[in-house]
Computed example of a mutant assay.
Amino acid sequence: MALEPQELEAIHAREMIRDCVARVARGEDRRDRDLLKTAYWPGAAMDYGIFAGDLDAYLDWIVPGSPAVLLTQHFIGQTLIAVEGDTAKAESHVIAYHRVDYGSEHRDLAMGGRYLDSFEKRDGQWRIAARTMLYDWSQDIGQAADFSEGLMGAPFSAGHFTGRTTGDFSAEFFGKALEGTK
């Protein structure tokens, strides 16, 4: 049973859209302006409730980000995608973790919600033209544990195991591999 060309094109579109959503998550977590620019069309509109603006304002908001937000990690869940020609709508579930420096202590915060993205395909590329964030829940997990030296009483064998917003081992791991997406 062979797939029809339009079925293959729809599968490819969905995979490119999922990849775009993943690039946003990594770009925000690593505060990587160039990677984020590959996921949005120039002039894209964003509305996060606590921020609304165009792509340039969004990039200035995310990169370098608040110095009080020491670490973020965005987990992307299922993404429902409706493709219609060269446009698509996608709803991606997200759980976002943030380690925040309150001055007297570091706290771990988590929130869950959904990205509502409007995509456009231009010159064979799918990118976000507009994003709205919906928040479903938020939780202050409490004072952050210091795991910089190891976990569960066992020390790390090298310094590269602890993640950071910028300059952690993942940059070396990927090396030039991500340049093709930029």
Rank of each mutant, 00 (worst) to 15 (best):
E4Y: 15
E7S: 13
L8P: 06
A10T: 09
I11F: 10
R14T: 00
M16C: 09
M16D: 06
D19W: 06
R23Y: 04
E28A: 14
K37G: 10
M46A: 12
Y48D: 04
I50P: 09
I50V: 08
F51P: 10
A57P: 06
L59I: 08
D60P: 03
W61V: 10
V63R: 04
P64L: 04
G65A: 13
S66F: 14
S66K: 13
P67H: 11
A68F: 14
A68V: 09
A68E: 14
L70I: 05
L71W: 09
H74M: 04
H74K: 02
G77W: 03
L80P: 01
L80V: 06
I81Q: 01
D86M: 05
A88M: 07
E91K: 12
H98C: 01
S104Q: 09
R107V: 01
D108V: 01
D108P: 00
D108N: 08
L116T: 01
D117I: 00
E120I: 00
R122Q: 04
D123L: 08
Q125R: 15
R131A: 02
R131C: 01
M133E: 09
S138N: 13
A144I: 05
D146C: 09
F147E: 15
S148E: 12
L151T: 08
M152P: 10
M152F: 15
P155W: 12
S157D: 12
G159M: 04
T162G: 06
T165P: 08
T166Y: 03
G167W: 01
S170D: 06
A171H: 15
E172I: 13
K176R: 14
A177D: 12
L178S: 04
L178D: 03
G180P: 12
K182E: 10
